[in-house]
Computed example of a mutant assay.
Amino acid sequence: MIQQRSKIAKFQSLIALLLMCVVLSLLSDKFLTFANGWNVLRQISVNVCISVGMTLVILTAGIDLSVGSILAFSGAIAAGLLKFGIALPTYDLYIGFTLLGALLAGTLVGAALGTFNGFVITKFKVPPFVATLAMLTIARGFTMLWTKGYPISSLGKEFSFIGTGWFLGIPVLVWIAAIVVLLATILTNRTAFGKYIYAIGGNESAAKLSGININSVKIWVYALAGILAAVGGIMVTSRLNSAQPNAGLSYELDSIAAVVIGGTSLAGGRGTIIGTVLGAMIIGVLNNGLVLMDVSPFWQQVVKGVVILLAVIIDKANHKEE
């Protein structure tokens, strides 16, 4: 009986997604269309990238509340450098940036902020919740300083192609998310580093005794979370063709929700990247369905909160039975 429940638990996210699709297709004739399907996939692409990074963090029994702010700052950096470059009037110097240069700069900013999170958590033993909460405020403040509170817009067709273009009949955003998922799946399932992540989340003391460099792995994990948040920031900025100072608000909540709904344990050591993708799809389909049914945005927040709570309760129940 317990084994049967365990098998069902492995597929509960997929079952929930399929049931949700069936119900929404019955409630709205606009839901089950190709156009709406691509729309949902584009909408969840950013959350998928962020949630993959969040999964790696939570697998180590950590948390990262700063991904939304890192997303905003990284996107603003890329947009600002692409449009304005760096001017140093004192030295009569101007440094311009190509598209690739601006994208790399934005990604490096995300990597640096994520690495700083990991450094503070490991070297000063600051709880991940507190350290990343502080970074949430710091990165948001940097975003406001960089943009001066105004959007950075009109970034060019090449940049906007990332967020609005299609390649081989599939949106570029979906391609980016798919590549991130593929690489993260290989990382967690086929590499020693992936095994270290699970080992630390499962039992950190045992992992340390087995010779794993706990601090190094954690720093790398938070750095990867920062990089993926930066990728998400570039995706959002490109889709809007504008870097908004308030971009990424509450994105950390959506990513945590996707991870939890996808079956990753908040206690660490248990979960999969594919599960997180399914969790992100559930959230995306739920949001899309509620919009199609003209449900108030306020009620949408209530429904999303209830779904997250149910996911945690189910996870706890499954964990007790194992």
Rank of each mutant, 00 (worst) to 15 (best):
S13G: 07
S13H: 09
L14T: 08
L14W: 04
L14E: 09
L14H: 02
I15M: 12
I15T: 14
A16R: 03
A16S: 06
L17D: 01
L17Y: 02
L17G: 05
L19D: 10
L19S: 13
L19M: 13
L19N: 04
C21N: 06
C21Y: 01
C21V: 11
V22Y: 00
V22W: 04
V22H: 03
V23W: 00
L24W: 13
S25I: 06
S25V: 02
S25Q: 10
L26M: 14
L26S: 14
L27E: 15
L27V: 08
S28I: 07
D29F: 07
D29A: 15
D29M: 10
K30D: 14
F31S: 08
F31T: 09
L32N: 13
L32H: 07
L32R: 02
L32G: 00
T33Q: 10
F34M: 14
F34S: 14
F34A: 15
A35Q: 06
A35P: 08
A35S: 12
A35T: 09
A35H: 12
N36H: 03
N36I: 05
N36E: 11
N36F: 00
G37F: 13
G37Y: 06
G37N: 03
W38I: 13
N39T: 11
V40F: 06
V40Y: 10
V40N: 10
L41C: 10
L41F: 02
R42F: 00
R42W: 09
R42M: 14
R42Q: 15
R42K: 14
Q43K: 15
Q43T: 00
I44F: 04
S45I: 05
S45E: 12
S45W: 09
S45G: 10
S45N: 10
S45A: 15
V46P: 05
V46A: 04
V46G: 08
V46L: 14
V46M: 14
V46N: 13
N47E: 03
N47F: 11
N47V: 06
V48G: 10
V48M: 11
C49F: 04
C49R: 07
I50E: 09
I50H: 02
I50L: 15
I50W: 03
I50M: 13
I50D: 01
I50T: 06
S51M: 03
S51W: 11
V52C: 15
V52F: 14
V52N: 04
V52M: 08
G53M: 09
G53Q: 07
G53D: 07
G53C: 02
M54F: 01
M54D: 10
M54L: 15
L56H: 12
L56D: 00
L56V: 01
L56Q: 01
V57H: 05
V57E: 02
